[in-house]
Design a binder for these strands. Structure first.
Lengths: 364, 364
DNA sequence: TATTAGCACTCGGAACGTGAGAGTGCCAAC
DNA sequence: GTTGGCACTCTCACGTTCCGAGTGCTAATA
């Protein structure tokens, strides 16, 4: 099974060249690269064997060779030189990371945008499933017909909402409910907040206006939202840059699959404990629609013991090396900025803190 | 300038047919539709004149006719039969509207998705610029190192955030600041919250920990966010369904323009006081990239004296009639659900209320 | 035994030519 | 003013030809 050193070099050359040009590569082209000190004839022989072994294939007799998924796999596993980003590149990326994250933190959205821009492939980001609970309830009495619900979640996110009542409520009731919820509904998972408990609370607080129902509805909704992994897709149109997607039908199929949501990289999720980058080549993907595309995924620490994923989708002829390097840099950068790390006991998304860790000087 | 009745009918027929088939339409095809009781020869004569008048053009001699932008304009203005949605269609739409809006209200996002799904063109939704102010401040003391800022905006939206302090603050200070902000910073526009005022407040509250700065930063950020119109684009890939975008380059150009954000329909904004639908045909668009596409826009009442826009982008050969009907229905539906209307004095996004207006029966 | 040079062969794709068909414009007749 | 007829035009689809890139094989070489 182990193949000769020279074969590896040749395989690597084919993949490199094919990634670059998107055209089948011939023996002559490899010989001319000068890395191997042998003639095109020798290379031809080796190529023929690589085809026999299944690493390469020919679109037709008398065309150059093209890597098979197996060939790419070998390339990714052993051959590819772990690309280091140039200094400019990494500075550029850092810069944009900072910019992005500083403005408004629609994090996932920005992350996927950034990934897409950097790699020039469609990218998507998603947050991991978590199990957030409510840590603290506050009800702010505004006037007889309005009060504000404020929920502080275990992730330290804060959600709030104004509730308008068709009937008048007195301040005491609101106060009572606030105490009650804090006493009985903190730390409960979404599933634990049952209609039974809600009903019990309603009676306990002597709530005849249905406020308990309104509040718990908001709580449930909020928890559901916070616990549902959300995905964000960017730069789908970049697919059209790739020659393999010049066929609008092909492109459209993949694009609508991607924007159709969910089932994208989650399939490849879970097996991502390390901070390494993962590559799924063509048929290695579970989804039918991705069978002749590749996916590169990196995971980052999103704080709150949560890991997010960034993935990039492209043709199998993808610049794995560059994409992997960029994604892993991006993931590392995000982890540093968002992740708990050595930050204060309760990792917060506080801008001030981010800046401190970041470069030490604040603005005011 | 006024053209004969028969010419109009013929023009309408050409546009209809062309919209349907995407192919130049010939005299025979029109004659066969049976609406006109004359022969193809007569129609040929009329067609020739319509070409001379600038309503139609020929891709080449001996090809059928294709409408010019001017032809479409005429069609849209006078000829097009205001399509009524079928009963099923409108019920379907109502259904989806309800579904969509009930779950979580990422309104713009959902609106654009919906519009895109319904019309099968890329759609984008955006919120109008507004001038929101803070109506009420609440600071919730959590512990010495943490407090929550809750802002109630003039739009009745509520924004909140947990602030973590590297130093300890006492409850009184937080209380003091709360009072102070409510006294001096309510109803101020973003621009009116100047560093000077902030500084003054800081001194007035005897705040040595910089809380004032943190709070006002959040306020400014929140106001900026609330006042910035946001846009959301959906279904860009649907462009690829259209034969005129089978050329990947063309498609890519338009798609990246669209996803490039901002400058899309805002150009056509502002002149939209009525609830009518607006159509911009080809060169009528200001943006270079849209010069040979068309845009259909409807505006809806998003509550808070704010109007949102929904727009759809497609080839000039777009089914204006259907799209216009759908968009206007959608806009009307949204206005009904989101808009102030006869709703309580302060239009709220309260789910309960929506449901009441909607169909009268609630769930609990 | 591994490498190389040479050569005949294959095959895809560009270039070209051809023909069919759709549609026109115009004319003469109604 | 309308209609049928007819010659003309132009595109598109199809088939043929031709070129060249790249191969596989063989024989010569180190």
């Amino acid at each position: 099974m182990a193949i000769s050193d020279r074969k590896k070099k040749i395989l690597a050359a084919v993949v490199d060249e094919y990634i670059r040009t998107a055209e089948p590569v011939g023996s002559k082209a490899i010989a001319q690269r000068g890395e191997l000190k042998c003639s095109s004839a020798t290379i031809r022989n080796e190529l023929a064997e690589l085809v026999a072994l299944g690493y390469l294939e020919q679109p037709h007799t008398s065309a150059g060779r093209v890597p098979t998924p197996m060939g790419y796999r070998m390339y990714v596993n052993e051959l590819m030189e772990r690309q280091k980003l140039s200094l400019e590149e990494s500075e550029e990326m850092n810069l944009r990371l900072n910019q992005k994250l500083q403005e408004l933190d629609d994090t996932i959205k920005d992350v996927s945008r950034l990934a897409s821009q950097l790699t020039d492939y469609p990218a998507l980001a998603l947050t991991a499933q978590s199990s957030v609970t409510v840590k603290r309830y506050d009800l702010i009495y505004v006037d007889a017909n309005n009060f504000i619900i404020v929920l502080m979640l275990s992730s330290n996110a804060v959600k709030s909402k104004l509730v308008h009542l068709p009937v008048s409520a007195d301040q005491e009731l609101v106060q009572r409910l606030s105490t009650l919820f804090n006493a009985s509904f903190t730390g409960l998972a979404e599933a634990e907040i049952t209609p039974v408990k809600i009903h019990a609370a309603e009676r306990a607080a002597d709530d005849q206006l249905g406020l308990t129902a309104v509040i718990s509805a908001f709580v449930l909704e909020t928890l559901a939202e916070a616990n549902t992994p959300t995905a964000f897709l960017s730069g789908e149109n970049r697919l059209l840059n790739q020659p393999e997607f010049r066929d609008p039908d092909k492109a459209h199929k993949l694009m609508s699959y991607l924007s159709g949501g969910g089932t994208i990289l989650p399939s490849a999720e879970g097996m991502q404990p390390s901070d390494e980058v993962r590559v799924l080549i063509g048929p290695e993907n579970v989804a039918e629609e991705l069978k002749d595309s590749s996916v590169v995924i990196a995971s980052y620490d999103a704080g709150d013991n949560t890991r997010g994923l960034i993935g990039v989708v492209g043709p199998t002829r993808m610049d794995y090396s560059a994409v992997a390097a960029k994604l892993s840099f991006l993931a590392a950068g995000l982890s540093r900025r968002l992740g708990g790390g050595e930050a204060p006991p309760e990792g917060l998304h506080n801008k001030l803190i981010i800046k401190e860790i970041d470069d030490g000087h604040e603005r005011r």
